[in-house]
Every structure is written in structure tokens, then in C-alpha cells.
Amino acid sequence: MTDYRATQERDRGQAPGAVSPAPGTGGTDASAVTPGVTTYPAAIAGGEVGGRPSSLASDAWADLRRKPLFWLSASFILLMAVVAIRPQLFTGQDPYECDLLNSVKRPSSGHWFGYDIQGCDYYTRVIYGARPSISIGILVTIMSVIIALVLGALAGYYGGWVDTLVSRSADIFLGIPFLLGAIVFLNAFERRGVWVVALALTVLGWMTLARLMRSSVIQARDMDYVSAARALGASDTRILVRHILPNAVTPLIVYATVTIGIIISAEATLSFLNVGLQLPSISWGLQIQDAQFRFESDPHLLLFPSLFLSLTVLSFMVLGDVVRDAFDPKLR
């Protein structure tokens, strides 16, 4: 403390002690008037960390590591990611090697998931179906989140004509009926692969996330700590990145994890309407649509892809939930 005072006076070009009443008086005053403040309730002393520097991210990780739900959901997602990237690791068979003699055979010890209507090994089909479904879900969500982060933050923070432009554009896109828009958009392409379908779903689906982001940025923008940062001389970029975004992304993260699930099922819908992925592509969506009319006779055709779809979507949602909690120090 003495050091602090000395530098202070040096900076002002005064001799140390020239203006202060008596050396040390101020210091004793400050501590003398604060009896009881330097003693801390035992309740909050639990998180004592001493000299180690900590950050929000490292604290969040320390918190996540102790959550079984995090490990459960993360490992399932990781497993599905590996399945999506390298399906060959999980099955020795070719998904296109089918024999009509085996059509809709029930699960057996050699073929756990049975056969589909074309007589293809259903386990292999489900394993190979992970890639398009998951990559469309993740691609669309990542692209929408980037659009939402940029547009929502700019519209919410600057307001005025930027906000008008972004919000009205979002309104225009929301005015397009989802299915009609998707059919018109996708029919423009003769070959529809993962990227084309992902692009269509992003174009028609970014608005909700952007609006969500905009409103939570507006909420954070008017907080006192933003005024305090501005009074310190912080730049707009710094205020946005350090103060507003960390306090505004929570709803976005949560909704984004839900979006992955919604998008995976939207892909299935489009495939059913014959404007999504095309045969001979393999995806859970196509399989579920194929199976829906023969649920009574061949329930296994609906069961397996649906099971994988639900488990994947559920894992993303649970992961989003625990990550959100970890990044909110108030819940710790």
C-alpha cells in the first residue's frame, strides 16, 4: 500500500508526504474504519484458490470435469462423431451390398439390426446414416450461430439503422413459409448433397437465433458494468467481446443445442418430401421415412434409426445444458 501511495505522488510531481497528512495515516484510517471486513464468513471461504490465476474457461472446465452427465453426453457425441467420420471402423460390410432375398428379415445373432426392405444389412445402413444426419445438423447450427452472433450483436449493440436493417431482413425471411421456401430453393439444384441441404436450412433458419441474440445483447448492453467499462475508456470491440457477449450467449448456446435436433428432423422431413437428400444417399431421416408405413409389420426398421437419432439429439441437449451451467459462475 505504501508503494501505491508513493507512485501516486511521484506521478503527480509531488514530493512523497508533501500533501498527505502524515505518512501512513491514510492507510491506518482505511483499515481502521473497516473492522470486520477483513474477516470473511467461512461459507464463502471454501473456494479459496490463493495465487493461481484463474479464468472463466478454466473454472468452467474444472466444474465440467466433475459432472457425470457431461462425460456421458460428451462420450456419446464423440462416439457418434467417430461413427460419422469413419463408419468403416464399426462395420465390415458395404452398405450398398444388398440381397433382395433377405428383405425385411428380423434381427438375428449375425445381423443385430436385421435387414431393410432392399435386403441390405440394417446395422451397416444405420451406421452409415450417421454422417449425413449429424453433419447437416452441426453444419446448419454452426452457420446459423455465426450469423446470429454477428448480426445479433451488431443490431443489439448499435441499434438505429443497423438494427432496423437486420430486424426487417429477419422478418422478411420469417415471412417465407419454411416448406415452400425449402422446396423452391432445393428444386433449383439437380444434385442435392449435404452442403446444399445445409445451406437451404441455414438460409431459412438463422432468424430465430439472431433475434434471440439481439434481445439478449440489448439486455446486457444497458447493464452498469458496460457503463463502467466505457468510463474506463474501453473500445466498442472490447465492450462487446469481454462484457456483452459472455453475458449474452447463454440463451444462444442453449437454443443452438436444441436446433441441432430440430435440424436433423427437418432434414428428415425434406427427404420425405423428396427435396432433401436423394437416394442412394443414406441418412436416418430417409430410413425413418421409409419405415413409417411398415411399423406394424417390421417395427425394427423404425426402431433403430429413431433410437440413434433420439440418443444423438438428447446428448447434444444435455451437453448444452451442462456447458451453460458451467459457464455461469452464479450457479457454481
Binding site: 472463466l56 457503463s227 474506463l232 475508456g233 469481454r242 453475458n247
Partner: peptide
């Protein structure tokens, strides 16, 4: 800015809840 500073009214909203005291 360096030489004129402010102390705000509400200690519950004037500190960023996601930053440590060090930050």
C-alpha cells in the same frame, strides 16, 4: 478517461458477473 473515474450506484449490476475480481 484515466483521470476522471466513476463509482456507480448499484454494486450488484456494476460488476460483470462473469469476470473474476482480478479481471
Amino acid at each position: 478517461r484515466r483521470n476522471v473515474q466513476i463509482i456507480l450506484q448499484d454494486p450488484y449490476t456494476s460488476l460483470n458477473p462473469r469476470m473474476t475480481v482480478a479481471d
